[in-house]
Design a protein around this nucleic acid. Structure first.
Length: 325
DNA sequence: AATTCGGGGAG
DNA sequence: CTCCCAGAATT
């Protein structure tokens, strides 16, 4: 991608960019875009597979997989998924059970359903993936972040993209607080939008994202390696700490999340299972709630009744499967 | 505004 | 052990 390099060497501005550059919008704090792009050219993760394509479907797959999930864990899933379902048309023809099985290990299983339903919706609407925020936002499982990300990374549109990393960098560098929780979402958005460059917003957003992941970590800001440190408001303020949520988490094995994950994963390995066999795979504390878990999973479209037992939804192609138990 | 929804790995 | 991760949907 010669484009990135070209941007980085476009102009040799002042080495230390002033945090506030007069004349942009309202005069709020801005990012030193030049330094940021130079850092990105040298340190960005340019070879991530979803950054090497502009295919909106492929980018959507990556973004949904990346929701609350680390890059390293998504990589093998992304590759396998696109090999199996290279297009929205291909995915729309898959059965639900196969899609849920392909998701094994990623967590938040509803994301697999959303992705499948999004593909079906795209095909129903003519077969062309939307590349603008509004069209993307209408797809299931696509919220403000994912819509902006796909529009920007695939459609190369000038969108304000705010994942957890970007929001943290903006909150620190421009607002002087520890993170987005210590600022209003509108405040972060205001400085983020004001800092969006007129061109190459894609590289701008990717740079902020990589910076947040590699340098400006939640617990470990490496300011000595940060291109924004000179004008960083958080650093200048002496690194004020953020408030702690301070919430006691119950043992994971006792949570509904654990039970639901176990249930779905058990059904991944079998065509169908009777309810008592599902109960055997759960700690006793869940016995009284098993029926409620199953009802919720059924309502969400992850599982379905199969005779006297349960199976992954859509097990037998698209037709109403005959009872197997 | 608060909750719920998985699972793995870093610290 | 706790915390965090390229969030979204629901209440």
């Amino acid at each position: 991608m010669g484009r990135v390099v070209a941007i980085a060497v476009e102009r040799a501005g002042p080495r230390v960019a002033a945090p506030e550059q007069p004349g942009a919008t309202g005069g709020g704090p801005l990012l030193p875009a030049q330094l940021l792009q130079e850092w990105y050219a040298a340190n960005g993760r340019h070879s991530l597979p979803w950054r090497l394509t502009r295919d909106a479907y492929a980018v959507l797959v990556s973004e949904v997989m990346l929701q609350q999930t680390q890059v390293a864990r998504v990589l093998p899933y992304y590759t396998a998924w696109l090999r199996r379902w290279p297009t929205a048309a291909a995915l729309s023809g898959a059965n639900t059970a196969d899609v849920i099985r392909a998701w094994a290990g990623l967590g938040y299983n509803r994301r697999a359903l959303y992705l499948h339903r999004a593909a079906v919706a795209v095909m129903a609407a003519g077969g062309t993936m939307p590349a603008n925020e509004a069209g993307l936002r209408a797809l299931p499982g696509v919220g403000p972040y994912t819509a902006a990300a796909v529009a920007c990374f695939a459609g190369e549109q000038r969108a304000y993209v705010a994942d957890t990393n970007i929001a943290r960098v903006l909150a620190r560098a421009l607002l002087g607080v520890a993170g987005p929780r210590e600022a209003s979402a509108a405040g972060v958005r205001a400085v983020g939008e004001a800092s969006l460059p007129a061109v190459a917003a894609r590289e701008h957003n990717l740079a902020l994202m990589d910076l947040g992941a590699a340098v400006c970590g939640v617990r470990s800001p490496a300011c000595e390696r940060c291109p924004l440190s000179e004008g960083c408001a958080w650093r200048a303020a002496g690194y004020p700490v953020g408030a702690r949520p301070a919430r006691r988490l119950p043992r994971f094995e006792t949570t509904a999340r654990f039970a639901r994950g176990r249930i779905v994963d058990a059904l991944r390995g079998h065509a169908a299972l009777p309810e008592h066999e599902l109960a055997e795979r759960l700690p006793g504390v869940h016995a009284a709630k098993l029926a409620a878990y199953l009802a919720a999973l059924e309502d969400e479209g992850l599982i379905e009744r199969c005779g006297h037992g349960w199976a992954l939804a859509g097990q037998g192609s698209t037709s109403m499967a005959s009872p197997k138990l």
